[in-house]
Design a protein around this nucleic acid. Structure first.
Length: 175
DNA sequence: TATTCCTGTCCTG
DNA sequence: CAGGACAGGAATA
């Protein structure tokens, strides 16, 4: 009888690439299902650390076709109003995925408050939880969590820096 | 103006 | 397993 090691399940392979975009360093990772991470940052090392922290169980492999992986995403960052014609693999709890789906329905160039977003989900009192779900988004720009502002119009926060959030919104408003 | 509560998830002890 | 911290905001005193 061949012994089956008590493997905590085989580590899932994720292919990633790091490059540059209009907002700085860019990291794109994909699973077998689609893009599972789009990260923005100041340098490649920080992005790699963030990827590891987001997927501690995965086996991270450099993508053979890094340019093909990066190009469409970099184009999206440069023109955040357009869509991304690639399959996404958003990972999160059912609650988080509901929030992210609602984010995708916000038209480019417009914004929403966290309270309005919570109301749209039928949970008007779960504002804080909704903000937490936005903060947990790993697919920068593709899932437009940057279009959500505080009720008083302030930019609140952004996982990849409020300056980038402002840049994305200005870019969309100019369309 | 200062508390308190609501709500889901993650991090820490 | 318990408690606290969040990218908020409305209600209460």
């Amino acid at each position: 009888m061949p012994t089956v090691p008590p493997s905590p399940a085989v580590a899932e392979p994720l292919h990633y690439a790091v490059g540059a975009c209009a907002l700085g360093a860019l990291l794109v990772a994909r699973s077998a299902r689609g893009l599972c991470a789009i990260l923005l940052g100041d340098d490649a090392a920080a992005l790699h650390t963030e990827l590891r922290r987001s997927f501690p169980q995965a086996e991270l492999l450099p993508a053979a076709d890094s340019a093909a992986l990066l190009a469409p995403v970099a184009a999206l960052v440069a023109a955040p109003g357009g869509g991304l014609d690639l399959p996404l693999d958003p990972r999160g709890t059912p609650f988080q995925r509901r929030v992210w789906q609602a984010l995708g329905e916000i038209p480019a160039g417009s914004t929403l408050s966290y309270a309005a977003l919570a109301a749209r989900l039928g949970m008007p009192r779960a504002v804080r939880a909704v903000a937490g779900a936005c903060a947990a988004n790993r697919l920068a720009v593709a899932i437009p969590c940057h279009r959500v502002l505080r009720g008083d119009g302030a930019l609140a926060g952004y996982r990849w820096g409020v300056a980038r959030k402002r840049a994305l919104l200005e870019c969309e408003a100019r369309r």
